[in-house]
Write a protein that binds this DNA or RNA. Structure first.
Lengths: 344, 344
DNA sequence: GTGAAAGCGCTAACAC
DNA sequence: GTGTTAGCGCTTTCAC
């Protein structure tokens, strides 16, 4: 049988199509009795509103596009990140009755901005969620803004007072981790900085410094090493730190990969983790639970962030009013086996 | 400025909207000169056809839905699989000018079938790609078929003569791997079977038997162990095989995780891979390149499979004719360091 | 509370 | 080759 239309429902229920539309869209001003009649007709005909018609008439596409950097498929850590971002965005879309379009794109490609603009003009989504690191690329952000489509950035670097973003409290939670390590009795807590281009990672360093201060510990260059977010750089940094005259008893790395590098070096040097050295990371990637001992780290609430981003878009559409403040989704400490009390 | 419509373009170009439509849709029967006029007008007005209007009028949504099992985000191997499937589907969608909607769903959930049906009736996609293992769940397949939406299954188990699927040549390529091992001089080539519920994995075992036969080697229960696709089961199977009186010199596991388990056990037993034992896997997961020695394996052409699936859908739509044969995307041997010649 | 009428911006069918 | 006309199935506006 051909699909039922709103006219069929109206006929069967003995009302006008406008009333059917009211029922379907949960609009007010329908008598309970009328509503029931309509709902029965809908059920009887297995009526489903036609999205295309609805979109055309309402000037909304009920589509959200999630744009993120396209990794090569083999970079599995990225795969985990992406799946989690999708998860959150999908969750929100289902709640708000929107569909999600995914659009991975090559970061480095010179044409991204132009391509994205063309894409958006064609699709006409009702909103866009732009994930890091693309959310930090000015020409990409600008190109999207030029289309006039509502945009929420996830983990943007600079915000310039623009409240249309979602991020986590990297600084605060890194401070918390540092205080946690201090509370375990550690006095010499080292930090391995991450890739300088990565904004979140800079906030983590600041949080580390806050944590030292709040714990009454002095910061020292002797306790700070630089990495680039890779395992290898974590190994190098660990070697550097552990070979100093007065080595740290705890190392807090700005991401999990570098923390894994630290654990590898400790193993090689015969230093027992956590008994002789506590190690903490950031991000809570899958590896954190897989290595031995399991890594204490900070979970990055990726799916909650994209979920919040989509909800900001759909809510503001409903209320016809832009959000006036960002959403900050707090990260949480994942205390596992790689950290323990230090007996001075 | 408000978006330009087809009427604006027609006015500016001095033609009818039908002609504009012809140009936009690359239909024949437009004089070159007219085409140029129209194209200029399009460029000048930055005209983009309105998808909703087009969809409504053409009764096509230009939407493909990719449905797959929703893993918990932490199961990172799945994340890699999913990203690769998405990649292929997206590639094809871009080529054919369709959009891709992703729909992860919980395999175990009793309502999947009903929910999927409701989803499809609402979205009205032009086609559906159903990935394994869902492509093997009869009630899911049936529910989708009931909606009348064109469906292509990826790696289905039974096909019942239905040609609407894409798969890889598991059996043939596993045979090839076995012959490769034999060609290296191995006489005692063991096989670790995978989870019995997993169809592809059964085909691999058959391919192994084919390979032995084609290499003039006898199959023997002594050389066959059962696993369940997990690393742990690979370890158990390896222990069992390697402690037999006449242990194998090569072990071929039905997936990479189990092969990794084999390598772990070999390491523990002091057996050198590949010098004393060759190990081969299946799937080419990220781990295969990360472990030491890098694992010889069979790559699973996931992204090519979903790409082919989407193209089957879009092509059949264009030609208004269902595909009459499945697409088989061949897997390929990835020869790495875990296999080497055996000097008898 | 409810309904009638007028589009939304395209494609399809057919006329010329 | 090109144009005309009639919808597609909804939402919107406004009248009652």
């Amino acid at each position: 049988m051909p699909k039922a239309t709103i006219d069929d429902v109206a006929n069967l229920a003995g009302v006008s199509i406008k009333t059917v539309s009211r029922v379907v869209n949960r609009e007010p001003n329908v008598r309970e009795q009328t509503r029931e009649k309509v709902e029965n007709a809908i059920a009887q005909l297995n009526y489903r509103p036609n999205k295309a018609a609805r979109n055309l008439a309402s000037h909304h596409s009920h589509l959200i596009v999630l744009i993120y950097d396209d990794p090569s498929a083999y970079e599995i850590p990225s795969a985990g990140f992406i799946i989690r971002m999708q998860e959150g965005a999908l969750r929100a879309c289902r709640k708000a009755n929107y569909e999600l379009l995914i659009h991975p794109c090559r970061y480095r490609n010179k044409n991204v901005a132009v391509e994205l603009k063309a894409l958006i003009e064609q699709i006409r989504p009702d909103g866009i969620v732009l994930a890091a690191p693309l959310s930090n690329v000015p020409r990409v952000v600008r190109a999207i803004e030029e289309t006039g489509t509502p945009l929420i950035r996830v983990s943007p670097g600079k915000t310039d007072g623009d409240p249309l973003y979602v991020s986590t409290n990297d600084r605060e939670v890194s401070c918390e981790m540092t205080r946690y390590l201090a509370s375990l009795g550690h006095k010499r807590i080292a930090f391995i900085k991450g890739h300088p281009g990565h904004k979140a990672v800079g906030n983590r360093f600041r949080g580390y410094l806050d944590g030292l201060e709040q714990s009454g510990l002095a910061a020292s260059d002797e306790l700070i090493a630089a990495g680039d977010n890779s395992i290898r750089s974590g190994e190098a940094a660990a070697l550097e730190l552990l070979e100093r005259r007065d080595p740290p008893t705890a190392i807090f790395a700005a991401n999990d990969d570098m923390a894994a590098g630290v654990m590898r070096v400790a193993d090689r040097l015969g230093i027992k983790v956590p008994d002789e050295l506590s190690v903490a990371g950031c991000d809570d990637i899958a590896l954190a639970q897989q290595i031995y001992p399991a890594l204490t780290t900070i979970n990055q609430p990726l799916s909650q962030m994209t979920e919040a981003a989509v909800l900001m878009l759909t809510d503001s559409q409903r209320k016809k009013k832009k959000p006036d403040s960002p959403t900050i989704v707090p990260g949480t400490l994942k205390l596992r086996e790689s950290t323990t009390a230090f007996a001075n």
